[in-house]
Every structure is written in structure tokens, then in C-alpha cells.
Write a protein that binds this DNA or RNA. Sequence first.
DNA 1: TCTGGTTTTAAATAGTATTTTTTTCTGTAA
DNA 2: TTACAGAAAAAAATACTATTTAAAACCAGA
Lengths: 232, 232
Amino acid sequence: MRSELGVSLAYGLLASLGQSIVTGEFEKTGFPTEAELCARFGASRTVMREAVKMLSAKGLISSRQRQGTRVEPVENWNLLDPDVLRWLMERPYSNKIFLEFAQMRLAIEPAAAGLAAELQDKRAIAGIREGLQAMIDHAGQPDLALQADIDFHVAILKASGNPFFWRLKPLITNALHLSIQLTNKISGHMADIHAHEAILIAIEKGDAAAARKASEDILLESLNFIEKAQAE
Amino acid sequence: MRSELGVSLAYGLLASLGQSIVTGEFEKTGFPTEAELCARFGASRTVMREAVKMLSAKGLISSRQRQGTRVEPVENWNLLDPDVLRWLMERPYSNKIFLEFAQMRLAIEPAAAGLAAELQDKRAIAGIREGLQAMIDHAGQPDLALQADIDFHVAILKASGNPFFWRLKPLITNALHLSIQLTNKISGHMADIHAHEAILIAIEKGDAAAARKASEDILLESLNFIEKAQAE
DNA sequence: TCTGGTTTTAAATAGTATTTTTTTCTGTAA
DNA sequence: TTACAGAAAAAAATACTATTTAAAACCAGA
């Protein structure tokens, strides 16, 4: 059996099961046995086991002989795994995750901006500038502007030179995608170009403290905005 | 064929291959084909494919029909995956990763301490206090003291109430394990109990700014220490 | 408490399907 | 006759199916 859309069958099952797990679909019933899963999806046991193994590699489930497979408690999930993060986003989101994202960004991004100012990786800094320029160029087109906004913030992670910061890219990306859904509800809101530019200028000058501060300012403003929107 | 030590065969292969990948063992030769891997490890194709699928779930490799399996560039690895992190640690470490860990801790931990002060989760704060007490009790025993130190810092992540912070536990744990190897070389060095207590007190008082500051102080001191040690 | 049966995952084995690269062949034009 | 283009065939690798056996853990009954 061939899955839709070019993805392999195992990856299709991975995505399907992953989403089901994060939406709590198996909370009451428990995770099905291999045989049940095969029957439900019309796949062979081998390929189903591959999907199950991938899920267990991401911490979502664990299997033991005779006992079956069960969904792990959320605290064992690899929340920073790009796939897990995406599945979490694809379900109807709660206000809580909004706040959690904002808190993470507030920890990560100013630090990354500070490191970028110290490291002075010209090539990476050029990437930040490109993001800013795209934000300016596409100010009228929400979709493109959002992508440019994301590119800008992600470029800062990259410019930090620390691969661990860089790996938080999916989290930042999702956070921005989410927050735009919220801010778009407020009429006429758009990203503050000048505030973004302030980060870039500080990084280019090599002023780490100013870069941290400028990044923090944007994020606090955004947090403020989120809280106001949620109060309504 | 049964693997050593009770772990299932697939997980044994996962660990073995994972380590080989992060140590760059396949850089020159390219990743072997399924058939070669089976021959080398004396395992069936099924179980080998399960291991390979888990590795690809962690971003370390990718497979395509006809083309074989290849190791992904490092930037695609899920560095924050606990397994990947552990494999990275099990290879001879470089000074670079030391610094990268310290940078991450400096971003994460003060933020977590600040959130913990705001949230006032009494139960979780009690966990921090237990860690501190264990540090005091086992001051003379390096192994136990290290574990207590780790427990203390990890408890702060938990007390932040943000599951994304909590998920960075493996990173903090590894960072502390690594840094103790370094600091132990310096005669008579031991964790500064008073500095740790300052974080706890600030959190208990609900003083987020002070908690952030106290956490930052410890980490900067530790960073300082690392730089001094590396200079030698 | 032991023992045997049952259930469920773990692993092995063998074979088919699919995809993509490489090679080979062939026909046509110079 | 040679050169080249395009088509066809072959090959190599993973993707998937099917089936069987093994091992572990639980449960029931003696």
C-alpha cells in the first residue's frame, strides 16, 4: 500500500500516529496492539513497527513484550523534537502554550543576539540583514512579512554560532506562526521594523548588551501584546 | 541474537550506530547499505531497519530508495535529543562544546529561576531545597555531591512550570557532568553552597529579579572558571 | 507456589515492489 | 562509418509484505 503525497508509508504512519498521540486520542482506550494498528491502517506489521519505533525514539511511547505499547507521560516527550513540536501545533492550541513559547523566546533570543554581537560572523549577520530587508519590502503582504520576520529571528540564532541555539529554530518558528494568528486579530498591528533594526545595529556594532536589550524589548512588547489579547 | 545488558537488539544497534555516527566513523566511507550493516552486526534486516528508522527520527541519517542511507549534516541532528546528546558526550569532548553548554545554561537557567520565583510551586520548590540539602550533606563525597548539584539545577527547571525548560534537563545534566571533570582537576574546588542557597532564597521570596541574578552569578563564575582552566 | 497456557512484542527469514541511477542498445544524421 | 540522442534494459538499493519462531509477562488453576 502506498501512502499519499510521496512520503513513505512508515513516515505517513509516524505523522498520523504522532498527531493522534499528542491530541490525547489514546488516553482513554490505551495504545492499540500491533495487530490492531495494522488492521486499522492496512499496513504490514513490519512497517507499523518501524513507525512505532520512531515514535518511541521521540519519547512518545514505549513498548514492552507482553505488556503492549503505551503512551508515555508528557514529561518524557521530546518536546524540542521538530516533529513533536509540529504535531503539538497542529492541534487546537491553548493559551498556555502561547505563554510557554514566549517564555522560552525570552530566555533564548536575547542570549543569542548577545552572542551574535560578540562572534561577529559577517556572513550570518548578513543573513539577519536580509531578513530585515525582506520585512521592509513585504510590509504590505502578511504572509511574506511573517516569513521574513521568522527568517530574521532564526538568522540571529544561527549568528550566535552555537548549534544548540540553532536547534531551537523550530520552536521559534512555531512561536512566531502562532503569535501572528493572535496579533492579526488586532487590527492594523504589524511587526515593529525599527525595534528589529535596533537588534541588528547592536549586533553589527558588536554591542552585546545592547543587542540583548533590544531583543528583550521586542519580546516583552510581544508578551505584553499577547497578554492584552488574551484578556479580551 | 540477543544484545548485551537486557536492552532490546534494536536499541542496542541504535546506540552503537548512533555513537559511530557522532564520532564521524562513516565520514569517509559513507553509511553502509542495509545488507552490509546486517552482516557486520549479525542482525536481521527487520531489526536493523528499525534501528535505522530510529536514527532517522533523530535526524542523524536519511534513506532513499536506490541511493542508500547517508549521514545528515550536523545541523540537521536533533542535538537536544537526550540520546544524541549522550552520544556526543561519550566521545572525547572538545573545549568548544564546553563553551556552548555554558552559553546555553546562561540563557536557560536564570530565566527558569525567575519563572520559578513567580510561579511559587511549593512542591517543586521543596525539590530545589532537597537538592541543596543533599549538596550540604554530601559535601565530602564528590560523586554524591555532583548528583545533588545536578538535582538542584534540574529542580529549578521543573519549578519553572514550563515543560520546554524542563525538557532541557539532559543538556544541563551533561553540562554539569562535563564541567565537574574540569573543575575536579583544580585542587580543592567545590560547588559554592552559599551561591546556590541565594537562588533558592530568592525563589522562595518570590523575587524573580534576584533569582535571575543569583543564577547568573553562579553561571558566570563557573564560566570564568572554565575559561581559566582552559587557558592552562 | 508452581506450572502451563495465553497474549503481546521481539526478532528472523524470505520474497515482492518501487525507485532511481547507470548502462546498453539502437536509430538517425553528419 | 562515426557520433550522438533517446529509449530501453539492467542493476542496486531501500520499501514493504507475509510468515514463523522466540521470549517475556501475566493469569488461572491445580
